[in-house]
Simulated assay, not measured.
Amino acid sequence: MDDTPRLHTAGTAPLERARDLRALIDRDATQAEAQGRLTDAVVDALHESGLFGICVPAPLGGAELSPRELMDVLEELSYADPSTGWVVMATTLANGTGGAYLGDDAVERIFAGPRTPLIAGQGTRPGVAVREDGGFRLSGQWGFASGMLHAQYSHSLGIVEGTDEGRIFVTPLDDVKQLGNWDVLGLRATGSIDYTIDDVFVPESRSHVFDTNEPLRGGALYRLGIVDHALICHSSWALGVGRRLLDELVRHVGARAGRPGQIAGSDAFHTDFARAEARYRAAKALVHETWDDAERTLAAGGRLDVRQETMVRLALNHATSTLAEVAGFVYISGGTSALRDGLIQRLFRDVHAGTQHITSGPQVLRECGRELAGLAPGETWSLFVLGA
């Protein structure tokens, strides 16, 4: 009997529920930015619609969307509001991978409630874990815990002392000291605060190897591992925000068409808008083509090869750099209306916060070029670098 995990699909219902929330999310976005967290109404609506469970394994009651289904939902939520899309992608990544990889004891406790648990934290800058009977002692300081103000658990990378093994540790928020230092250019409503954990015992079942891609429950989605899952999330976010920027510029220009001296009558603007639209659509096509290919591999019971791993990283990097170009064009074209406090200004700031994420860094692009040029024979991807 073939027990290879197969790709689970959920259909269009989650995307339709996300679209139904667009008006509410858009309405509350300004208030959310002012208070540094999503509004209670939006969080409750996301829970009630099941959208915090889009990555949770189906055996635990989640939707377990396929990569392309997941992309569509996250694009829609990020279009409605970049901060909302960011919080959902960050927490659902941790919820989903936790549900797939944590031990049975942990899963039975964490996923026991009527609502999908929210797990938030940081998986790049590690703390230190010391092995102890039955588990580990974890200490450290982590940054950029997106969604932690709405979470019940933290998800933190630690390096095990003596073995250098990287593990993810999931701990109740009672074990976390939140530093509350989210004073930034954009994505203010994500509440991506720093936090510390000081010598907290974490049972073995509440941890898993960082780079595991063998799920204990759920299907082929979880054979991607945490990093590739993050690439899906950030690619979707970039595409959703890019589309919203261009659509807002269309509305801005259209409302002023026919007035003397307005940009709507500029031949140069018409040409530049066509180029921006083409760049965005080309980036989107690359992302979707790349993940369509990856999804076919997963559906057939396979794993991504090195070239596919290169392409999903390259597609995200290209989408992110294209988003920055589009945001700059929209900001300049918006004139003084973009300069003042308002939607275009907020979108511009959110973009330039999102582009700072490690998944879209310059090192990744260099490594992609090296592999595509045939200069990395026998090397494989480890996080964002290639090695033998």
Rank of each mutant, 00 (worst) to 15 (best):
Thr336Pro: 02
Arg223Trp: 03
Ala300Glu: 13
His318Gly: 04
Gly96Tyr: 08
Ile226Met: 12
Gly240Phe: 02
Ala300Phe: 10
Leu24Pro: 05
Leu65Thr: 10
Glu76Thr: 14
Val130Cys: 02
Ala120Trp: 03
Ala353Phe: 04
Leu24Lys: 03
Ala58Gly: 11
Val241Asn: 01
Val87Gly: 12
Val312Ser: 05
Trp86Thr: 15
Arg37Trp: 02
Ala315Pro: 04
Ala189Gln: 03
Asp211Gln: 14
Met1Glu: 13
Gly328Arg: 01
Asp3Gly: 06
Gly186Gln: 04
Arg244Gln: 08
Ala63Asn: 05
Ala100Pro: 03
Leu347Tyr: 01
Glu289Phe: 01
Pro57Gln: 09
Thr97Gln: 13
Ala294Cys: 11
Ala338Cys: 11
Leu179Asp: 09
Ala268Thr: 15
Glu248His: 04
Pro203Trp: 07
Glu214His: 11
Ala112Lys: 09
Val364Met: 07
Leu323Cys: 05
Leu179Pro: 05
Gly98Tyr: 02
Ala129Asp: 10
Gly143Asn: 05
Arg223Cys: 14
Leu185Arg: 14
Glu204Gln: 15
His318Tyr: 10
Gln178Glu: 06
Arg109Gly: 04
Val241Pro: 01
Tyr280Met: 07
Thr271Asp: 08
Gly225Pro: 14
Leu70Trp: 07
Cys55Asp: 05
Asp350Tyr: 00
Val128Gln: 08
Ala34His: 03
Ala106Lys: 00
Val330Pro: 03
Ala34Tyr: 00
Thr12Arg: 12
Ala238Gln: 08
Asp292Glu: 10
Thr116Phe: 14
Gly135Glu: 11
Gly254Ala: 10
Glu161Leu: 10
Glu132Ser: 09
Leu93Ser: 13
Gly218Leu: 12
Gly328Cys: 02
Ser205Gln: 15
Arg307Thr: 13
Glu108Ile: 00
Ala299Trp: 08
Phe273Gln: 04
Gln122Cys: 05
Leu383Asp: 08
Ser156Met: 04
Ile263Asn: 08
Asn95Met: 06
Val176Asp: 01
Gly225Cys: 09
Gly301Glu: 07
Leu70Ser: 09
Ala315Glu: 00
Ala189Thr: 06
Val87Asp: 08
Ala94Phe: 11
Gly361Phe: 00
Glu75Pro: 01
Pro172Leu: 03
Leu347Asn: 01
Leu179Trp: 00
Leu221Thr: 13
Gly98Thr: 08
Pro14Asn: 11
Ala264Lys: 05
Val200Asp: 07
Pro59Arg: 08
Ala353Asn: 01
Thr355His: 03
Glu379Ser: 10
Gly335His: 03
Leu386Val: 08
Leu7Phe: 14
Pro57Thr: 10
Trp86Glu: 12
Ile25Asp: 09
Asp26Phe: 00
Leu365Asp: 06
Ile159Thr: 15
Phe384Met: 11
Gly242His: 00
Phe348Asp: 03
Gly242Asn: 04
Pro215Asn: 13
Asp305Glu: 09
Pro260Cys: 07
Leu7Ala: 12
Leu249Cys: 06
Arg370Ala: 09
Gly387Leu: 07
Arg125Glu: 06
Leu365Asn: 12
Ala324Asn: 07
Gly53Met: 07
His150Val: 11
Ser154Thr: 11
Val209Ser: 15
Leu60Pro: 11
Leu286Pro: 00
